[in-house]
Structure formats: C-alpha cells, structure tokens
Design a binder for these strands. Structure first.
Length: 107
DNA sequence: GGTTTGACCCTAA
DNA sequence: ATTAGGGCCAAAC
C-alpha cells in the first residue's frame, strides 16, 4: 500500500501539461482531503533533480503561492506560461479553465 | 514520541 | 479586490 507521500507524487506526475491542480485537490485524491498543507510541504522538499511537475500545483483560488526559496513565484509563472497557461501579472490563473479533472474527458 | 512546522483552505469582514 | 484568523494534519525535528 502506498503511503500519502507516494500517492501525492504519483498524482502530480499524472497532471498533464497545460493543466493545474490545487494542493487540496491533490490531497483529496491521495485520500486525505484536509492535508493540503502537506502537499506543499512535500513539494517544498523535492530534491534538485526531481522530475515531478511541481509548478502545476497552485492554491484553490487559482493563485501561485510558492515560497520564494529555491524556486520563485516568477519561475513558476514562466513554467506555466511555457505550457500555454495564462498567468496574470498578479500571479492569478483561471483555475476553472485549467483545472485537471481526471474523471471528466478533455475535448 | 510529543512538539513544531508550513508552496493550504475556508469564512468573514 | 485584499486581509485576518482559526482549523487542519503528515512530516520533520
């Protein structure tokens, strides 16, 4: 049985290019609906060589809330924009437009 | 093994 | 639109 962290990584790896998910959404998919902060914690501690697409995870209001450390909000904005996601200068995204919904089909 | 720590979330101004 | 406060809980100390 996979533990929480392993589920989180697996789920984030499954977010397609050009789509986003919220921390709480990932937590719920991993089986712990109120553990949103843990998802951020896991991403925060990914090692340098990690291929996990952490930039596709934002908060549930559609805002980039990464802590300014190894990567900055600007880094995340650039990565999302390079995949076609429109990010406003105040770091807002139309989450209803870009949210990853596994059970629905993408046209 | 108890305590601290957050890349959150929701509600209410 | 933005801010404040309380709740939350897996991991790291």
């Amino acid at each position: 049985l996979l533990d929480f962290k392993q589920y989180v990584i697996k789920i984030i790896n499954s977010i397609p290019e050009g789509r986003v998910a919220s921390y709480g959404q990932v937590a719920a998919m991993a089986g712990s609906p109120r553990a949103a902060r843990q998802v951020g914690g896991i991403l925060n501690r990914l090692d340098d060589g990690s291929l996990v697409p952490w930039w596709r995870v934002i908060n549930n209001t559609g805002k980039i809330t990464i802590k300014d450390a190894q990567f900055t909000p600007f880094d995340q904005k650039e990565r999302l924009e390079s995949e076609g996601v429109i990010v406003s200068n105040s770091y807002h995204i139309d989450i209803n437009k870009y949210r990853y919904m596994p059970e629905k089909r993408t046209k």
